[in-house]
């Protein structure tokens, strides 16, 4: 007897839960032959707002967590992704790539998670500084996470672009609300299922699907978003975002990296979303310098 295939419902990921969009809307991305891929949530500004609330709530405990433990958790994501690679490869193929390309993309995504695992307890050491000053002070600068970061993921990949943009941000102790690729959204939600079973606390990464054009202005204007990473490809949208973001003085970065390339393994993607705190500590004498040099 013929069997009816059970099609997966792709829901969004907010605060460790998988709600449907509050708007009840969906869209149907197509594959290269014009066949529907799946029904996917068309997130609204309220979903975005809810996601920011979840990310803000999660920020305190994530940023204060021991760096080494953050690394352990990101490594765990890699482990879980490895275990479910077949599903990701299948989705990437469905979205128009060859089997070989799909395998390569999943391999690279896992490796990239491991790459940033290593940086978790090292970027502070590498990028913090002891500064020479002309007075009797021990003067040092350390990095602190910016806060809640909104990300518009690259449009041209389903998995590697998502992983490569959000993982450096959470490596640095920030929390993230990411809008997945509009045309290639399948892996994003499956990735949320991986996160959900990887010891990643609720709210650290929140994943929405939908239209950049609809959510862009809310991402830019929301006062509780501290920074934005724009990895999509509309230059005009980027400038619009920068203008809106200036109202609440938030950082906006744009990246055009090719995420399949090694250049995307880059600690500066971590430091982009760090603030520098400099402390002047009174001291008699340090490193041979005295107050009269």
């Amino acid at each position: 007897m013929a069997r009816l295939e059970i099609l997966k419902t792709y829901k969004i990921y907010i605060g460790g839960q998988f709600p449907r969009t509050e708007s009840g809307r969906f869209y149907t991305p197509l594959d290269s032959k014009g066949n529907p891929l799946a029904n996917v949530c068309l997130s609204s500004r309220k979903d975005f707002r809810n996601a920011v609330v979840a990310a803000r709530k999660a920020f305190g405990s994530w940023s204060e967590r021991a760096a080494f433990n953050r690394g352990q958790i990101i490594y765990r994501i890699a482990e879980m992704l490895e275990g479910r690679r077949a599903q990701f490869e299948e989705e990437i193929i469905k979205q128009g790539k060859s089997a070989k390309e799909a395998k390569q993309e999943v391999d690279l995504s896992i490796d990239r998670l491991v790459y940033y695992t290593g940086w978790c307890d090292k970027y502070q050491q590498v990028f913090s500084a002891v500064n020479p000053v002309a007075s009797s002070h021990f003067n040092f600068s350390v990095l602190e996470p910016t806060g809640v970061v909104a990300v518009i993921a690259p449009q041209d990949s389903s998995l590697i672009g998502l992983v490569s943009t959000i993982i450096p941000i959470i490596t640095g102790g920030n929390t993230v609300v990411v809008l997945a690729s509009e045309k290639l959204p399948l892996c994003a939600i499956t990735f949320a299922e991986v996160l959900n079973s990887s010891d990643v606390p609720a709210g650290i990464i929140n994943i929405l699907t939908g239209q950049e054009s609809e959510l862009l202005s809310h991402m830019g204007s929301h006062k509780d978003v501290n920074a934005i990473l724009y990895a999509s490809d509309h230059k005009e949208n980027y400038f619009k975002l920068k203008k809106l973001a200036s109202e609440s003085v938030k950082r906006v970065y744009r990246t055009e990296l090719n995420f399949m390339d090694e250049s995307a393994e880059n600690p500066f993607l971590i430091t982009d979303f760090q603030e520098v705190k400099t402390t002047w500590h009174p001291i008699e004498n340090i490193g041979g310098s005295s107050s009269n040099y």
């Binding site: 803000r56 809310h218 204007s221 929301h222 006062k223 509780d224 109202e247 609440s248």
Partner: peptide, 9 residues
């Protein structure tokens, strides 16, 4: 104001 707020303010 028409924009979402932050508790910072």
């Amino acid at each position: 104001e028409g924009v979402y707020q932050s508790s910072d303010y």
